[in-house]
């Protein structure tokens, strides 16, 4: 196919001016989009979700070489440490067997006490396993793309975890791909509870490795090494998910090291779990919904 090239003379001059005008117009359009960006329009959400599915095959293909290299180094490292790891794992299994027996006993006791007190515990929900296929955030966003979407039952706001603890929550959902905002992202807010003190706080990401704790009642009650868990008070994430450990307490604030290593995410689990939210689904009456939920949630929060 061959097409006409640039014209000459006056027409070329007109086109040049039109191009200059188009440049300024597009700059203004970009700025307008940015200014309106705080108001998350439904079309923008649909566009983002649709694009996730479109770029998923590319993301998957581009992740393969890196995964192969990473897996190869991992297998070499594992082989070298196999004997030592085997001995360590055997010792750990024995120790865990003892703890499991004690935990079974505690769970049975706990169940009996709950029956006596009439407390209902929230449903833990089902877990959807998903592979991390890309980490395209750049300098100002901490997010990953995972290979699971609407088709698998993923919905916006769901908690994402690994065996170690909380990773983040789902912010965009495509048909078979979703975006997960990590707890280290600047826009991440997580209601947490600090293990030893029982203090409640909001953990906020800072686009750095260590998120900060804000809105603490008595910050003196928090010490290095304290465990941080989700409290469930944000009405989004289920309570009791391990988040990390307090590693810094000082004038610069209180910082938490996430339990999950965000740099080496391979597989994650998305918790398909309904939290008692403030707004009922469309068509459902608030009064009918709020009463049973409140009583159900009382026992769920630590």
């Amino acid at each position: 196919m061959a097409t006409r090239a640039r014209p000459s003379g006056r027409l070329w001059l007109v086109r040049l001016w039109l191009q200059r005008f188009a440049f300024l117009l597009l700059l203004a359009a970009a700025f307008a989009l940015l200014a309106l960006g705080r108001v998350e329009a439904p079309w923008a959400g649909k566009l983002r979700a649709g694009l996730l599915d479109a770029i998923a095959p590319v993301a998957h293909a581009l992740s393969l070489p890196g995964r192969a290299v990473s897996d190869w180094f991992g297998s070499v490292k594992d082989t070298a440490q196999l004997q030592r790891q085997n001995a360590e794992l055997k010792a750990e299994i024995e120790s865990l067997k003892l703890r499991l027996t004690a935990l079974d006993e505690l769970a049975r006791e706990n169940g009996e006490f709950r029956k006596l007190l009439g407390i209902q515990i929230h449903d833990e929900g089902r877990h959807i396993a998903a592979r991390v296929i890309a980490d395209p955030g750049g300098p100002y966003v901490r997010s990953v793309l995972v290979r699971a979407g609407h088709r698998d039952g993923v919905r916006k706001g769901r908690a994402v975890i690994t065996a170690q603890g909380l990773v983040g929550r789902v912010t965009e959902v495509g048909e078979f791909t979703s975006r997960v905002m990590l707890i280290t992202d600047l826009n991440s807010r997580t209601a947490v509870i600090i293990g030893n003190s029982g203090e409640r706080a909001i953990m906020t990401g800072a686009n750095a490795d260590l998120p900060r704790l804000l809105h603490l009642g008595r910050s003196g009650a928090v010490a290095k090494g304290d465990k941080v868990m989700t409290s469930g008070h944000d009405g989004i994430l289920p309570p009791g998910l391990p988040v990390g450990d307090v590693v810094e307490v000082g004038p610069g604030g209180i910082r938490v090291r996430p339990a999950v290593d965000m740099q080496s995410l391979g597989f994650v689990r998305i918790i398909d779990h309904d939290m008692p939210g403030l707004l009922p689904p469309p068509g459902e009456k608030t009064a009918e919904r709020a009463a049973p939920r409140r009583s159900r949630y009382d026992g769920g929060s630590p």
Partner: peptide, 23 residues
């Protein structure tokens, strides 16, 4: 402009930031 918007959609950055930078 379209490439910039695509960059924002891929990265998850606010729409318009990538387009402004590329333009």
């Amino acid at each position: 402009f379209v490439a910039g918007l695509l960059e924002d959609l891929v990265r998850g950055t606010p729409l318009g930031a990538g387009a402004l930078a590329l333009l």
